[in-house]
């Protein structure tokens, strides 16, 4: 009797181990295969071709060789399109992700305390995320207008020189150094000069635009924290700084980790912000202007996909590059996070 029950239970358990996860995962995996995973395989295949509207010629790894060639310099000494876009993407990710998460963490903490008009305040911080990028972008373009924008009026008011903002391809570091009277050393590597003023403006827009997303994610994590834990800590005389860093941070670390991973991925893929803010320059000035100083990798992919002949294969190779970069970055994040993220 008893052994029969054990056998049946063991059988049931094995069934569960086999079939239950399969059942729970099936819809997701089927859909992901059809709409996401299969396309990336197709992309990998296309990247081996010269491909316009149809496959034109099988060229093996030539597209990848072209990527490497275009990392290097152009005739004038500037980096090639791919090299430039990798640098711009690097600046962009490093400039937006940490800033967004830190600011969002502070705001979410403030919004999680007992304040009046909580609903209204939370909504205020979330509204930019809902507002269409185009509408918000137009408002920003005007704020940053070199001739009549509000920002230049403010600069003037503070006695600072007016700037070209979104139209300025000059890198920011030499500019800031120049402002305090230090010259930029000749022959210093280009990437040390930092992002262009135009790119910094786009990054600021991006932080503003995605802040609401990050705040809501963190809030959802904060709300789940047992208030008694905090109360107990407060009784022990923990100050706000300690509360944030020693209590809250570890407790929401799974959320923060998720946010880090997701924000990094999104930041690497950012296209809309760049497109809306920097392609308004009239005929011939596509996204990425001025002087390709806002040319992120997705913008370069876009350029090759639609504005270059028979470049679909090359665009696919660039997509693979972006995909692999993201895969590596995410794996590194997981590896580093495993020791720091606390579940439970």
């Amino acid at each position: 009797m008893a052994s029969e029950i054990t056998v049946r239970r063991r059988k049931r358990r094995r069934m569960e181990r086999l079939w239950l996860p399969a059942l729970y995962l099936a819809p997701t995996l089927v859909l992901l295969w059809a709409f996401d995973i299969y396309p990336i395989f197709l992309s990998a295949w296309m990247s081996l071709w010269r491909w316009g509207i149809q496959p034109e010629e099988f060229i093996g790894l030539d597209n990848y060789i072209r990527i490497f060639e275009q990392i290097g310099s152009r005739p004038g000494g500037a980096p090639g399109e791919v090299g430039q876009s990798l640098m711009v993407t690097g600046f962009y990710v490093l400039g937006t992700v940490p800033a967004t998460i830190v600011i969002a963490f502070v705001i979410a903490n403030l919004l999680n305390s007992k304040v009046r008009f909580l609903g209204a305040l939370r909504t205020a911080y979330f509204v930019p995320y809902i507002t269409s990028t185009v509408a918000a972008g137009l408002a920003f373009v005007w704020l940053l207008n070199p001739q009549v924008g509000v920002l230049n009026s403010l600069m003037e008011w503070f006695g600072l020189p007016a700037q070209q903002w979104l139209l300025d391809p000059e890198p920011i570091v030499p500019k800031l150094m120049g402002a305090v009277g230090i010259g930029w050393p000749d022959g210093a590597p280009g990437f040390l000069a930092g992002p262009s003023v135009a790119l910094v403006c786009v990054m600021a827009f991006s932080v503003w635009n995605t802040l609401g997303f990050a705040v809501v994610i963190i809030l959802a994590g904060l709300i789940t924290i047992d208030p008694q834990v905090k109360e107990a800590a407060r009784m022990d005389g923990v100050n706000s700084w300690q509360m944030a860093t020693r209590i809250t941070m570890p407790l929401v670390s799974p959320t923060l980790f998720l946010l880090l991973v997701v924000s990094t991925i999104r930041s690497f893929q950012s296209f809309n912000e760049v497109y809306v803010l920097t392609s308004g320059g009239g005929y011939g000035a596509g996204a990425g202007s001025p002087l390709d100083s806002t040319l992120t990798l997705p913008v370069l992919i876009f350029r090759h996909l639609y504005e270059r002949p028979s470049s679909v294969g090359f665009a696919a190779a660039l997509s693979m590059l972006l995909f692999l970069l993201l895969l590596i970055v995410t794996l590194v994040q997981f590896r580093f996070a495993e020791r720091r993220v606390h579940y439970d």
């Binding site: 399969a22 295969w33 299969y38 197709l42």
Partner: peptide, 28 residues
């Protein structure tokens, strides 16, 4: 785990035919 294979097989077949048709420029 077997489920991954089971779920993936039909869609893989479907996808493979697509790969062939789209690569031969079928609809062009």
């Amino acid at each position: 785990m077997s489920m991954s294979k089971k779920a993936a097989l039909p869609s893989f077949l479907l996808a493979s035919t697509l790969l062939v048709t789209s690569c031969s420029g079928g609809g062009a």
